[in-house]
Design a protein around this nucleic acid. Structure first.
Lengths: 207, 207, 207, 207
DNA sequence: TATGAATGAGCATTCATTCAT
DNA sequence: AATGAATGAATGCTCATTCAT
């Protein structure tokens, strides 16, 4: 019988989604399990049946969100291939999509929660980084290496180039969003994307 | 007699320092006031006598730390003036000192704590940013403007240039320190400083 | 199944009774919720589960006691009907039963607690009065009106007559019980009942 | 040197008056010594210097108030002498003055405070009663005995008569003031005084 | 004598977690 | 598998009281 298993999985997802939403809104310590149960529409012991304890709940909720955010950012750099002409439009486009993903509600919440509990859940923070920032940096490095090989960028260490491009993109987000309190408007994201791309291409253009 | 007032101020400082240390180690919600009192070597009500409640304690402790960190970073960019020759050594040097300040125990804790409680203490997060990142960016923009005027950099928007240089420096810190769990060795900081400076100067060198 | 609901109600009653007993013994502010929990044989959070907070606990406990005391006093004046002959024995009897109810442990505690917290719980004090003194006065006024109509008392304002009869009965209690510290012996209660009845009938006898 | 002693006494009075005012407003347990010190315009330890501890403060403040209220009520019954004619006006007048004293701010607060802490301060409650209700009842009994002897009242037990007259006066206050929450207007006090006097004289008039 | 400062003890309330059903 | 009910353990905060000056 697959059905019950399916139902079980669904309920687990349902709880994890509710959990992430509540953690995002209230922070880890301020969140009580009852709130999550209420948000998920189940009783408190049901939460414990599925997820052992509050820590596990947090871990699983963040990992699920990390996968989602990671997938989004990967998709953003995916199209960054040599299209035979000026690479700037592809960069600008990727950059903007990346910024959207990073400054989305979910992306910022994920970052904030992982950061906030980095001490108590050190392994979790590392894993979240792995599934988002690091995976993204590697995917981007791959693309940059191919572009360099194709002569669209000067020869360079692709890891460092990727790290710097990402820094140019996400660095400004933090200050400008006032640590997440302010939603950055699309036009401002575009400006950041353009400025980052401009500086990056100036520094990494083939001679 | 200045002594009693001095004693009062000292005790307040003593409590704030202990508070920052404990908050840094345990996080805001996980910290109980008793721990802070113990760390400061006073009784719990004494803490309340000087600082009203836990929230105020947090606020004041973070603001004090922000001032200290802010001063350190300002000092790092202060010497970045036109010395008549190749500006690269000055940049590299400033960059390294900046990274040291940002990746110091106190700097990272400050950032993490402000970030973690950005919701509950939104105004505090903004004020911390003001006293650290924003003030720093402005000071750096001042220096870059002078350098551009002196022909050491190409004409550019100094605010954006400053923002990008800082992004190139601090962006890599986050991933590499695994959100603060890992202490970055000096050599690695130097490498980041060099790479950032190199990319920055390539992008902003006069034609 | 009524059992579970019953169990819940029982536990609530059990807590309220324990609460009243402890409040009566120690006063509102001096009582700590832990004591009530202990007296009720449950854990402290169970008390909070059923009754929200200390104030609610106090309110509900007093209202329950007020209903009980009110019922007792109402029953005392209920038989006060025209029996065709000398009404004095009926008055004396009612009076004595009333004094018993008012000077009972529970009656005095209720009065004292309501009085003591009359500021913080003004609405509660009013409600307790309503359910005890006022209801009683009205019931007694009803009886007196019937007796006057039957020619057993002179024509009079029944509300005032009731108020005065009750004053003659309960007024002496306060001083004699030394504000509740002393338990008044039955013989003394009888003497008060007789004296009050005598004075009342002298003043309200038909001409 | 009498001056310092005088100053000392004054400060003690000042503290006791402030204490009574604050206790009256907030109740015993809810009052903290700091509040009293503030109200008296002195520092907390000064309060302790003069009055040992919170309990003593309460005791002394209530006894002082009891003396004041007692004197007021005694003065009200003092003029109740045989004036050779109809005694009713004298009774009505005394009654009204008595009701004023009993329903005054201070009188009600005194009663409420003594009542509220009757358990913790049993001796104090008794002493307050002595200095107010009992002393008053005895003074009134004296007057009634003289009036009976003069043939203005029927022969009777003056203690009981006094007790009942006081009951007829003060009994209605409690319900009507809703345990002190409501200030009874002068006209209502007059009506109570008249009704009590009427009933009393009907019951105690000479045959 | 008066006070600024400090503290030990206590208390309401919350919450993660576990049973019994 | 799901839940209503119960609880042990914490924690923020207050306050009577005491020193040192």
């Amino acid at each position: 019988m697959a059905a019950p298993a399916r139902g079980r999985i669904d309920k687990r997802q349902q709880i994890l989604e509710a959990a992430f939403a509540v953690f995002a809104r209230r922070g880890y310590a301020q969140t009580c399990v009852q709130e999550i149960a209420d948000a998920a529409g189940v009783a408190k012991p049901t939460v414990y049946n599925h997820l052992t304890d509050k820590g596990t709940l947090f871990r699983e909720a963040l990992l699920a969100a990390a996968d989602a955010v990671g997938a989004e950012t990967l998709a953003a750099v995916e199209p960054l291939r040599d299209s035979g002409g000026d690479p700037r439009p592809a960069f600008t486009d990727s950059a903007y999509r990346l910024l959207q993903a990073c400054s989305s509600e979910r992306g910022r919440s994920l970052h904030r929660l992982a950061y906030a509990q980095a001490d108590e859940f050190a392994d979790l923070a590392a894993e979240v980084q792995q599934r988002t920032a690091i995976r993204l940096r590697e995917a981007l490095a791959d693309r940059l290496a191919r572009l360099a090989l194709a002569g669209r960028l000067r020869p360079c260490a692709p890891e460092t180039a990727a790290e710097q491009y990402l820094a140019l993109l996400t660095g400004p987000l933090e200050t400008r969003s006032r640590l997440g309190a302010r939603k950055i408007p699309a036009a401002e994201l575009r400006a950041i994307a353009d400025a980052a791309t401009d500086t990056f291409l100036r520094a990494y253009a083939p001679d």
